[in-house]
Amino acid sequence: MTDGIDEARLDDALVARFHRLQRGALPENWGRAVERAENLEMESKPPRRWWAGAAASVLVIGGIAAIAAMSRGGSPFEDVAAPASTVVSNTNPESAPTDPPATSTLPIVTSAGRGLAAFGSAMVVPSRATAGDVVTVTPDGLIQPTCTDLGGIFDVDGSGPARLGVIGGSEVWLPEMQRPTLPACLPPETDQPFSYVVPAGLGQRTVAICRSAQFDEAACGPLEIVIAADGEDAGVSVPVVEGLTEGEAVSTIRLLGLVAVIERVEVEEGDTDDGRVMFQRPAAATSVTEGDEVRITVGQASAREEIDS
């Protein structure tokens, strides 16, 4: 534990070390900024070349083809060569996209997490799946699952390339998963469903929809999809409840067959943590079994709040 080092001493030590750091050397970067700005100015005015019109025509034709593919119910990705390093073709016939989905192992469960109001939610069918299942995600119109540099689906477990979707103009997806049938460019906020096929041998994964281009706990949620490998009992994945109100957290925990144990810490009157879950144990995405406890720490007015003092 950390006996003997109280908050004030820690704060003093950090202030002193940062103060020392701020007395160190300091480079002059204004000239670099100006030079870079001038370069950006020049880069934004490229000379017009003969092939520019031809390239534009190709893009227009490509766009029309993409729209046509979407209208046929297919994906414009089908005709797009993705980077070889990120493509893993699925050769397992059991998980081919044309196969009928296997029986869902559990009813639909979407667990609400932090940022519900800000980031929206999504319906996932099924919430647990085995190899060959088609998992369909239907956003509620508030999340940004694809397109632009603000969207993506992230593998919370963090093993290997984690993104699934279109991020910053590049197609990236979990290597074990098949190419998702995502529309080429969803609007920033969408309610269009998209789906993918769960391959064999995936193991248990938790996938979350995030707003950020990089996986960021704070920007993720509220969705968790637990995918179990063939024949495995995935157990229960602890939901993200930090940031939720006590009531929301307890109902979310109970919905998954877990037991909520509440601890309270004092916060200032009017603090945004008042009535909300500040910490949880075990951490989100931890696999537990039904009936296990999830301990949550809920802020309760009124105590001095450390950061805004």
């Binding site: 932090r114 800000a118 930090e242 945004t272 943590d273 500040m278 450390e306």
Partner: peptide
């Protein structure tokens, strides 16, 4: 950081 104050407090606590 385009986060929420609550999340900032939680992460600061963990950092401490």
């Amino acid at each position: 950081l385009e986060s929420s104050p609550g999340s900032v407090r939680v992460q600061l606590h963990r950092a401490h």
